[in-house]
């Protein structure tokens, strides 16, 4: 120790010694090592393989009449499928996109205009908006109304009023046939 002190003191003028360099390199190496060791711990908290494996849902659309909505479970949460009426499609297209909080055309949110498929969680804080049942309040825009904090969505699932920042999320999906769809 005494030697080190002497050595350090001797080089005081230059401010740097070989020992400083070694301490720095060792500390940096240790920090990188600890950082790397933390990765598996963090990753163990991310969705596991079996959770990821449950990531597709197939839905038969035959029983869903025009004007009806169904809710299916996908990735542990609800997905809204609404068989839209011509009036609802028209409403969705009549909007001036530039005035929207999250500007998206209706065409970019559907694959077939009569079928709207969106995740059923409000983009504010994840509650399930009302509007799936005929008796539910649908808000001022004929779409969905979130009871938690009052967000309102239109017939394209776009945010129109209230605190939610984004439109209802459109999950990836493909039509397997005219009357069946695979979500995920």
């Amino acid at each position: 120790m005494a030697e080190a002190t002497l050595h350090g003191a001797g080089n005081h003028g230059t401010g740097e010694t070989r020992r400083d360099f070694l301490v720095l390199v060792t500390a940096a190496f240790g920090a990188v090592g600890v950082g790397a060791a933390v990765i598996p711990f963090i990753q163990s908290m991310a969705p596991a393989a079996d959770t990821l494996a449950l990531s597709t849902t197939e839905v038969d659309l035959t029983p869903v009449a025009v004007g009806q909505s169904i809710t299916v479970k996908w990735q542990g949460g609800p997905v809204f499928i609404r068989h839209r009426t011509p009036k609802e499609i028209e409403e969705a297209n009549a909007v001036d996109v530039k005035e929207l909080r999250d500007p998206q055309t209706d065409a970019s949110r559907v694959k077939k205009p009569e079928w709207l498929i969106v995740k059923g969680n409000c983009t504010h804080l994840g509650c399930i908006p009302l509007g799936q049942k005929p008796t539910d309040p649908r808000g001022e825009f004929d779409g969905w109304f979130c009871p938690c904090h009052g967000s309102q969505y239109d017939t394209s699932g776009r945010i129109r009023k209230g605190p939610a920042p984004k439109n209802l999320f459109v999950p990836p999906y493909v039509f397997l046939t005219d009357k069946s769809v695979k979500i995920g």
Binding site: P47, A48, G77
Partner: peptide, 13 residues
């Protein structure tokens, strides 16, 4: 949020 949930919604994990 997915890291907190361990999935895509609040669930068993």
């Amino acid at each position: 949020t997915h890291l907190l949930w361990g999935g895509f919604a609040v669930d068993n994990p």
